[in-house]
Computed example of a mutant assay.
Amino acid sequence: MTDQHVLTWAVTESGGYETAWVTLSGTGLRARGRVLGLRPRPYWMTYELETGQGYVTRRLQVTAETPSATHRLDLRRDGGSWTADGKPLPEVAGALDCDLGLSPLTNAMPTLRHQLHTGPGRHDFLMAWVSVPDLTVRPSEQTYEHIGLTARGARIRYTSGDFSSDIEFSRDGLVLTYPGIGHLLRAD
């Protein structure tokens, strides 16, 4: 079964917006998106994301343009090894997911994989976190914990370092409200 979604979030942290065309098929996800941000400095960004089975990242291609530079990233995961623009990233070896900074979309992969939007669970993850707009990749330890079901889906507590937020997900496992980051404006 294939589900297609067009989602637009107001990203309050960046003072901008993100629109993503998302296809969920079996246990895989494909997405392409466009982002406009005003903070930390104005930027435009486009991305394409592809996962394999189990919502495990295969590839994230991103281009970010600021007034002073254009940054590109081709992030790939192959059998547990990661590369950025062809260069090995041993610091994120073993990670299953990428996490594109300030993007509500990439919180879906671990949530969907572990069905945290449908029932109890708590999982710790190592992520290949991508800083925006410079597109630097860093390791990030994160925890996702199912807090409870809501009228629209579920609430999941996201924690990374000193940051914590109770994110509301739809019944499809996509972000509706991410306190401190943004909220869904429209879904088709």
Rank of each mutant, 00 (worst) to 15 (best):
T2V: 15
T2L: 13
D3F: 06
D3R: 15
V6Q: 04
V6L: 14
L7T: 05
L7K: 06
L7D: 03
L7R: 15
L7I: 09
L7V: 12
W9E: 02
W9A: 06
V11G: 07
T12F: 03
E13Y: 00
E13N: 07
E13L: 12
S14C: 15
S14K: 11
S14L: 12
G15F: 11
G15M: 12
G15C: 14
G16T: 10
G16E: 02
Y17P: 00
T19L: 09
T19R: 15
W21A: 15
W21V: 14
S25Q: 10
S25N: 11
S25Y: 02
G26T: 09
T27Y: 05
G28Q: 15
L29G: 08
L29D: 04
L29F: 13
R30Q: 13
R30M: 03
A31R: 03
A31F: 01
A31E: 03
G33D: 02
L36W: 07
L36C: 04
L36E: 05
L36F: 06
L36N: 06
G37K: 03
G37A: 06
G37V: 06
L38S: 15
L38M: 13
R39W: 08
R39P: 03
R39Q: 13
P40I: 12
R41Q: 13
R41S: 07
R41V: 11
P42W: 02
P42V: 07
W44V: 03
T46Q: 12
Y47D: 09
Y47E: 10
Y47C: 10
E48R: 00
E48I: 01
E48L: 00
L49T: 13
E50M: 01
T51F: 01
T51K: 00
G52I: 05
G52Q: 11
Q53V: 05
G54K: 01
Y55P: 07
Y55T: 04
V56N: 02
T57F: 03
T57M: 03
R59G: 11
Q61T: 09
V62G: 03
V62A: 03
V62S: 02
V62Y: 01
A64L: 05
E65W: 00
E65Q: 10
T66V: 15
T66K: 08
T66H: 09
P67E: 08
S68E: 15
S68K: 13
S68W: 10
S68Y: 07
A69Y: 05
H71L: 04
L73N: 11
D74P: 13
L75V: 14
R76H: 06
R77P: 12
D78S: 11
G80I: 02
W82D: 05
W82V: 06
A84R: 12
D85T: 05
G86F: 00
G86W: 00
